[in-house]
Simulated scan of single mutants.
Amino acid sequence: MKQKYALVTGASRGIGKAIAVKLASDLHYNILLNYNSNDAAALETKVLIKAEGVHCELLKFDVSNLDQTKEILEGWEQNNPEALLEVIVNNAGITRDGLFLWMKPEDWNVVINTSLNGFYHVTQPLLKNMLTRRYGRIINIVSLSGLKGNAGQVNYSAAKGALVAATKALAQEIGKRKITVNAVAPGFIASDMTAEFDEKELKKHIPLNRFGEAEEVAELVVFLASQKASYITGEVININGGLYS
């Protein structure tokens, strides 16, 4: 029997980690766990995934680097010709917040390159095999910032907003091959990325009166990755406790 895999980018910590573990536990996917720098965190996550009785392979590369990403992914495919990569979760993303007036080019470029170009670098070379096999799930982690905008995050909002549009367009291109493409847009989720936020103040604007948990985002992603979501494509699903504007 061919081994089925799911690739999750930026998966050593936070939302990506929760998604990778949940894909292993609920859908029994073997996991390709991408990360950029934190070896210790990646190894810890690998242990949790393997405890679910599946295989986990660490793929260390920077999704913003086209050549590096292509080399690693093509190398894995060549070394695993019998593997079926059925799910791609584009989760990798970073923030470099600041007012647009003072934003440095490097802060603009690194955010765009990671969230938006990273989606292209990872997904485009893997798509051919999905099309050939006529099955796949592509799930892009976007953000409330990419839908409503957020002051101090023009770069992040631009990257995630573009990824929303790319999600909808790609869904129309490849739907006939039974490949779905959807986006998940978290609001404020308890993680390293929100650790410095004023949670007490921000909760006042959230109807559910709390930050979300990474595991709750993972539940939604796993649903979209499952057979149960086979008629859902081109959608952006919010998970934000009711926070819209």
Rank of each mutant, 00 (worst) to 15 (best):
K2R: 10
K4V: 09
K4L: 01
Y5L: 03
Y5N: 04
A6I: 10
L7N: 01
V8N: 02
T9D: 03
G10R: 03
G10T: 10
S12R: 07
A18E: 13
I19C: 05
K22T: 09
K22L: 02
A24E: 01
A24R: 02
A24T: 07
S25L: 05
S25V: 07
D26K: 13
D26T: 13
D26F: 06
D26L: 09
L33W: 07
N34D: 11
Y35L: 02
Y35S: 02
A41F: 08
A42V: 09
L43E: 13
L48T: 07
L59C: 07
F61I: 06
F61M: 08
V63E: 08
V63F: 08
S64W: 10
L66R: 00
T69M: 04
E71V: 07
E71S: 10
I72H: 05
G75N: 08
W76F: 14
E77L: 15
Q78V: 05
N80S: 09
P81L: 11
E82N: 14
L85M: 05
E86W: 01
V87L: 07
I88G: 01
V89G: 00
N90I: 07
N91I: 09
N91C: 08
G93V: 12
G93S: 13
G93E: 11
R96S: 09
R96N: 06
G98H: 12
G98P: 04
G98S: 09
M103V: 07
K104I: 02
N109L: 14
V111P: 12
N113H: 13
L116K: 06
L116A: 07
G118M: 05
H121F: 06
L127I: 14
K128F: 10
N129C: 02
L131P: 00
T132F: 11
R133L: 14
G136L: 04
G136E: 05
I138H: 12
N140F: 12
S143C: 03
S143Y: 04
L144S: 04
K148H: 04
G149W: 04
N150Q: 15
G152C: 09
G152H: 11
G152T: 11
V154I: 15
N155G: 03
Y156C: 00
A159S: 14
K160F: 05
L163R: 05
L163D: 04
A166Y: 04
K168L: 00
A169H: 08
L170V: 07
E173I: 01
E173Y: 08
K176M: 01
R177L: 07
R177V: 02
I179W: 02
V184H: 03
A190Q: 14
A195V: 12
D198H: 13
L202W: 08
K203R: 15
H205P: 00
I206V: 12
L208N: 10
A214P: 11
A214N: 15
A214H: 06
E215P: 00
E216F: 13
V217Q: 08
V221G: 01
V222L: 05
V222Q: 09
V222F: 06
L224I: 09
A225Q: 10
A225K: 06
Q227C: 02
S230Y: 04
S230K: 15
Y231G: 05
T233Q: 00
E235M: 11
E235I: 00
V236D: 06
V236E: 03
N238R: 12
I239P: 07
G241Y: 03
L243G: 05
Y244C: 08
